Simulated scan of single mutants.
Amino acid sequence: MKAYLDARQKLHDPKHFMANGTVSPNPEVPARVGVLQAGAEAAGCRFEAPEDHGMGPIAAVHSAEYLTFLRHAHRRWSRIEGASDEVIPNIHPASRRDSYPKSVLGQAGFHQADTACPIASGTWEAAYWSAQTAVTAAHAVAKGTRAYALCRPPGHHAFADLAGGFCFLNNAAIAAEALRLQGLRPAILDVDVHHGNGTQGIFYHRSDVLTVSIHADPIRFYPFYWGHAHERGEGEGLGYNLNLPLQRGTGDQTYMESLAQGLDAIESFGADVIVIALGLDAHENDPFKGLRVTTPGFAQIASAIAATGKKLLVVQEGGYMSDDLGPNLTSFLQPLV
């Protein structure tokens, strides 16, 4: 099993995170990289640096307008007298159809969904290499090997033109599109505790990529507005999006029942490759405390996915600092290695 990581992913070092009206330290810290790397190596992975595939694979998923904003936002923000060190919006449009301003403050509100995705000086470079890690891993999978992409910052809350929830570039979507362009038929299986709303949004009107997400019920859990069971896709994409929300506190047995349902949909879709958006934050001791998957439960999840016999690409999403983070990744990857 190939594994990929670029050290420049540590350049994104966000300081702020607002939740419930309180400003707290951002939990998506560079230290996650070292813990996850050690967890993967304990499973038998040996890391290689990704290749630079340029902007093409990223622009195949994200709008040029959005990418221009991400590339230059911090520099432009720094020109504002008295501005903070990080780009954090304080105003948002009522809809995506509202006018697009020239002000970086207005554009931040248009392109950043929440206060959990501050943009600092190293954010673009880190997000760029996180995406290149996913693309390089996708090319390895297309050649016939399983691969793990240690992507950080994560990506599944990023829409085509909107950052959110610690995410800027949607690594799983970028990888799936790269696989599709190489003649494969990809399905994205998101096992993060939070719904992959950005991934759903990117493919919601498409029938060439199936999106499946197993997550804590968003009725009272982030991202709130997406991830409900009735969301099945629209237009050409109707029936190509499957959400399997779980009651808060759900453990291994019920989780595995939902996973079986998701894998059945993937089989019916005729996928020959599964992009696993791997969130380890479904664990019982993760700080977000949405579900109660155990460390051995992650091995059960991976084993069930591997039993499909399909090509597999694992793209890292959530999973935050705790004593269990590294062992959870080891548990998941061992059946695949």
Rank of each mutant, 00 (worst) to 15 (best):
L210D: 00
A265G: 03
Q253V: 15
S331K: 01
E48L: 08
G251C: 10
S268D: 12
G39A: 03
W129D: 03
I88T: 12
L329R: 05
G319R: 07
F269K: 00
L70W: 01
D192R: 00
M18Y: 08
I274M: 07
R97T: 05
A3I: 02
P153L: 13
R71Y: 06
Y66N: 08
A113W: 08
N241A: 01
A59W: 08
D272I: 08
A40E: 06
C167W: 09
V61Q: 09
F168I: 09
R180D: 10
H194E: 09
F69W: 06
S268Q: 15
A178L: 04
L313C: 11
R97L: 11
D324L: 05
Q334E: 12
A229M: 10
K289T: 05
F332Q: 05
A260S: 15
F269A: 01
N90F: 03
Y100T: 14
E41G: 04
S63A: 12
N26Y: 04
D6P: 05
R71Q: 14
Y240W: 14
S99T: 11
K310S: 11
L259H: 10
A299W: 03
P245A: 05
G319A: 11
R206A: 06
T330L: 01
N241F: 02
A73G: 06
S103N: 02
H74R: 15
S95T: 15
F159Q: 12
L162K: 13
G201A: 13
V193A: 14
G290Y: 07
A38F: 01
E267Y: 02
G233I: 00
G239C: 03
I266V: 14
F298C: 09
D281S: 03
T211I: 03
V275E: 01
A173T: 03
Y240M: 10
S322P: 02
G227K: 06
F166Y: 15
A40Q: 07
R8V: 08
Y255M: 08
T330N: 04
E86W: 14
Y204G: 00
F224L: 13
R32F: 03
L278Y: 01
H12D: 13
I119N: 06
V212S: 04
A113V: 00
F168R: 06
G155V: 02
E234P: 00
D52A: 09
L11F: 10
A173I: 04
R96D: 06
G318L: 04
L184Y: 04
M321R: 12
S130I: 07
G198Y: 06
S99Y: 09
A126F: 01
L105G: 02
V35Q: 10
A31V: 09
S103R: 02
Q300K: 15
Q107P: 00
V193K: 03
L169V: 09
M321S: 15
Y255L: 07
D85P: 02
E41S: 04
R220W: 12
V135T: 12
F269D: 00
V104R: 00
L278E: 01
Q300P: 02
A142N: 14
Q107A: 10
H195P: 10
L184H: 15
D323N: 12
E257Y: 11
N26H: 15
R46H: 09
S268T: 11
G279D: 07
F110K: 13
L312T: 13
G233A: 08
E267S: 14
Y66K: 09
V337T: 12
H139E: 14
R76A: 11
A64Q: 13
F203D: 00
G227N: 09
A19K: 07
A3G: 11
L11C: 09
L242C: 01
C117Q: 07
Q300D: 15
D217E: 12
Y148L: 10
G279T: 00
